[in-house]
Computed example of a mutant assay.
Amino acid sequence: MKEIIALSDQEITINRNEFLKINGSIDTNLYYIESGSVRIFILDGSDEQNIRFGYKENFVVSLDSFLTEQPSNLCIQAIKKTVLKVVTKKQIDDFLALKNNAILWVKILENLAVQQLEREIDLLKNSPKERYERVLKRSPQLFQEIPNRHIANYLRMSPETLSRLKKS
């Protein structure tokens, strides 16, 4: 991972509620969060549905747009002031052209795929309590970095249900 971060020659800061990526745009950058936090969400009519979060020492990316170089429906918005290192697709492509670097990239993509699959299974199969407990076990830092209303949305439950689960 350090090898990917080291590719960055650009750092940006986005303020609270500012968008890094908007619905329908193309974004072929990978971002490493130095500080702050972001949410990745989609719009469903007028509703927003959080699908991922990023905070200090996480990578965030609009993966579909990054891979296809096409517009994506994903939005990335700062939850609080966030400092990000920017790694361009060209920088990654050049890095991958070097011997043995593709193995690291495959590991990163495999990790993203496994995380996404775990989330999908949670949403389809588990009760709200089970979803809460699995996320708490998998990502305890999430509850220190992300406001409860965003976590509740991510877990597909009301803020009141999340509050009850946290108390029990």
Rank of each mutant, 00 (worst) to 15 (best):
M1L: 08
E3F: 06
D9G: 11
D9Q: 09
I12H: 07
I14H: 04
R16K: 13
F19Q: 06
N23K: 11
S25F: 08
T28Y: 02
N29Y: 04
L30T: 02
Y32N: 03
E34S: 13
S35F: 04
S37V: 01
R39N: 09
I42T: 12
I42C: 04
L43V: 00
L43S: 11
D44Y: 02
G45D: 02
Q49E: 12
I51D: 04
I51L: 15
F53T: 03
G54D: 07
D64P: 00
L67M: 14
T68N: 06
L74A: 08
L74N: 07
C75Q: 11
C75N: 15
K81Q: 15
T82F: 00
K85R: 13
V87C: 06
V87K: 10
T88K: 02
I92Y: 01
D94E: 15
F95K: 02
L96H: 10
L98N: 13
N101E: 05
N101D: 03
L109S: 06
L109N: 05
L112A: 04
V114M: 10
E118G: 01
D122M: 12
L124D: 02
N126S: 13
R131K: 14
R131I: 15
R131V: 14
V135R: 09
L136G: 04
R138H: 07
L142H: 06
Q144Y: 13
E145C: 05
I146V: 15
P147R: 04
N148T: 05
I151Q: 07
A152G: 06
L155M: 03
R156P: 00
R156W: 00
E160S: 12
T161L: 08
K166H: 00
